[in-house]
Nucleic acid binder design. Structure first.
Length: 278
DNA sequence: AAATATAGCAACCGCGTCACC
DNA sequence: TGGTGACGCGGTTGCTATATT
């Protein structure tokens, strides 16, 4: 298409934002909303382009942004979600309230990528099958599945206990609340397992598995690379179907504000376990 | 203590998509 | 229905802080 960058206008400031500019932007948005980003700088009397204002607001100034280090649970979610959707940072961010796509992207590139590499879970070394997303994501899917099963088993035991407690006496409203919270959070894990166990999921696993095996045997002289690449294509097609199915049939990854976490936060689990222990 | 290397992160850039005319 | 503009996303850059020599 080809459109001149909005920041080309002479005289518009670039680079780091000053506290004064931040305040100006926050004050304006809190009073008027952002409306059109294109018009905002003029209305707010900021010498910046709209794009820069939007970025500053969404990545840094928004009041609901969660600051501080990523929790272990968040790290796990990022790894698993990345295994599912790849570099779809906005999709991943939608599952992590208070975190921005930019923050997650940076965190992935600076921390998690290295960790996974050390564990041998990141992109395979360059080779004939290195580009196949289906094969690459299998290991991460597998860990996500095992975790979902473990959590469901934990949830079902604590949920049953919570139900028994509440039906036996009306004494523990907090237990009932915890049970409800657990049930609410059980849904995503349940959805994940439904996805994994669905026809599409099993078809994806069958298609991806031979590629994973082939990866082990890669760089064999005289290997039939065209057959391998056909299998890769098939696996990639199955993988795409798998993702489409996740999105459309099971309602995974629906929108920036309508999404859910794949797994319940640890504090919910902890609360449930604590309650059922008494 | 100074120089250099490395890591972390905020911000920018370019492109794709979508809505509106 | 095609063109245009605005928005949002993902990749990349460059600055700053920290670690190492």
């Amino acid at each position: 298409m080809g459109r001149a960058p909005c920041c080309d206008r002479k005289g518009l400031k670039k680079g780091p934002w000053t506290p004064e500019e931040d305040k100006q932007l926050v004050d304006f948005i809190q009073a008027n909303g952002h409306g059109s980003w294109r018009l905002l700088p003029k209305l707010a009397e900021l010498n910046r382009c709209g794009k820069s204002c939007r970025l500053r607001w969404t990545n840094y100034l928004r009041p609901d942004i969660k600051r501080g280090p990523f929790t272990a649970e968040e790290q796990k979610s990022i790894v698993q979600l990345h295994g599912i959707v790849g570099n779809k940072w906005s999709m991943i961010a939608a599952q992590l309230p208070g975190r921005t796509d930019n923050e997650i992207k940076n965190y992935w590139n600076t921390h998690l990528k290295k960790q996974l590499r050390r564990m041998g879970l990141d992109e395979p070394p360059p080779g004939p099958t290195a580009g196949c997303p289906a094969a690459r994501h299998m290991a991460q899917w597998e860990t996500a599945r095992l975790e979902a099963e473990a959590r469901l088993s934990l949830l079902s035991s604590s949920g049953a206990a919570a139900t028994a407690t509440t039906s036996g006496s009306a004494s523990s409203s907090s237990t009932a609340a915890a049970g409800a919270a657990v049930a609410e959070h059980a849904k995503p894990a349940d959805v994940f397992l439904r996805l994994w166990n669905s026809d599409i999921g099993s078809s994806f696993r069958k298609a991806a598995a031979p590629v994973s095996v082939k990866e082990e045997e890669a760089v064999v002289p005289g290997d039939d690379s065209s057959a391998a690449s056909n299998e890769m294509d098939a696996a990639a097609a199955e993988y795409q179907m798998f993702l489409d199915f996740a999105g459309e049939e099971l309602g995974l990854f629906h929108g920036r504000h309508g999404g859910f976490s794949l797994f319940p936060p640890l504090d919910v689990l902890a609360e449930a376990s604590l309650d059922t222990a008494f």
